[in-house]
Design a protein around this nucleic acid. Sequence first.
DNA 1: TTGAAAGCGCTAACAT
DNA 2: ATGTTAGCGCTTTCAA
Lengths: 341, 341
Amino acid sequence: MLRATITDIAKEVNTTAATVSRALSNHPRISEKTKRSVHAAAVKLNYKRDRVASSLRSGKTHLIGVIIPSAEINFFGSVVHGIESIANAHGYGVLLFQSNEQRAYEEKGLENFLSARVDGILVSIAKDTKDYSHFKQIRSRRIPIVFFDRVKDELGIDSVVIDDYRGAFMATEHLIARGYKRIAHISGPLHLKNFYDRLQGYKDALKAKKRKVDQTLIYNGNVSIESGREGTRHFLSMRNPPDAIFATEDFTALGVIKELKEKGIRIPRQFGVIGFANELFGEHITPTLSTVDQQTIQMGKSALKLLLNIIDKRGTNHETKQKVVLDPLLICRESSAGKSK
Amino acid sequence: MLRATITDIAKEVNTTAATVSRALSNHPRISEKTKRSVHAAAVKLNYKRDRVASSLRSGKTHLIGVIIPSAEINFFGSVVHGIESIANAHGYGVLLFQSNEQRAYEEKGLENFLSARVDGILVSIAKDTKDYSHFKQIRSRRIPIVFFDRVKDELGIDSVVIDDYRGAFMATEHLIARGYKRIAHISGPLHLKNFYDRLQGYKDALKAKKRKVDQTLIYNGNVSIESGREGTRHFLSMRNPPDAIFATEDFTALGVIKELKEKGIRIPRQFGVIGFANELFGEHITPTLSTVDQQTIQMGKSALKLLLNIIDKRGTNHETKQKVVLDPLLICRESSAGKSK
DNA sequence: TTGAAAGCGCTAACAT
DNA sequence: ATGTTAGCGCTTTCAA
């Protein structure tokens, strides 16, 4: 039992493939009568349009390639959820590819997408990526592409991010407002803009409140529970230790909390902690973790919407690059409730 | 600047498209010399095989369609991670589709995949699905399909699951071994085989240890923090309350723990708790949550391997349905450490 | 070992 | 409003 083709339908209703094709895609100059009979025959023969053939002819695959570092990471799963919901509503399929945080895979993913002739590409850059020539190739081929979360502004590629700077600013300001005096920061790898911006937001929030930025209160971590622990041990060994930590990411903050609890330091009475990411666990640990929400689903939706705009506008030479910046959301929970608590 | 085609390469090396095609796919009867010059020209012209054209001609898209309830759920993200890793290694692309736990979307996803002419389909059935006719259609079209985690045996479709029964048995047995006397269970929706099997595993573990199965110690929940809380409140209000709960899923277990803590009941000294799923948060809450790991990545890998086998064997009428059952892994943490602790 | 030719199923330019 | 024709880029007989 073979798949029905438009030719089969054409025979069934005594017309030609071209008319059937037009009827099925709701061409305005096809009579209602023909459309009806074609649709009826399509249903009868259980016809499904062959997207492969359609793509070959039309040059549009209605496929979006998405590269994420890992589907295992909740953050990206959530963004993909947002992407998918919009894609689906617009008749696009999502081709998923994981870079495993490695540039080599990232490049392979892009080549796959080129080969699959996707209509557009969404990428969150791998940690490992420091050379960006593979993206330049995409641009030179004029494939619509949008970065999300992990971006590289210098490439002049459209992007959707949350305002890491502002989120960090808010988090730090919040710790100050809750009465913490010496606020430290555990950063992430600073070659990634997200973490760099968070560091700047932290510094500027201190300055804005007339506090000195103390370089000894900045510990360079690598976004892990262990680096949260290490940073905390480091800070606690100082002559004049801090009384609060803004961690660049929730897992780091988790390490901070674990270490503080082991040392018998009470949170938030003696020590304040805030993270960044709004990971699921933050709500359920003790004390619950204050953090900054990254609007993941919205990020996915915005990124795909932006991409679809670019796809639609192609040809039109509106070469203005867009950067969508989403507002982070401060989430105050127990871990930063203040010294009076 | 247009994409290079095999015809361009053919011109470059003074041969025909057919030879180029064969050279690029490493056809055995093409001379090494030709292969080398063709490959050189391909690199020079920055040629990428057009998968769309290739698919149309060959009938193989090298695309796998994957339907999951939601990419936001960690479990499925993790399985997708496993699927992707194998797909990638075998030159397959992964088309992702979310059912949002709804049958209507699930059906739409299948139709999309049919239309995209994917070589095979992987599905984890939506909670909402109670009528399975859409899957029967896939089977009648002889598209290779494999279920994972959420399966329906009656359809005679290959599947990969973990042994929910055994996991539940192990969890219950573990609570008994740790000295808990009256062990209750909070179940999930029993029309889903997973939860039904876990209930059976719970019952049989009790029987195996010569304990009576007490129907009043089984609370029918719906896999949520709130249902964990409700179940716990229910049990605690009994004249003769239990001293341990095996929750059918980690979020339910989390609700149990939250409720117990609020009531001032000490875990694990007074009350034991174990969940199922090995969600990320379990390791980080207080007390840490004992649970059963579901081998998510392995599940994804096995499901895709099974699917690839079926794809390769098509035509061969080896119509024996396979059911891969993975071993669950008991993870003992604080919440079930025993009454003596 | 290579070439010639056909065609996968669809869409679009051109014609009527 | 519909038919005719060509062709997207590739793979695959068949022939040499």
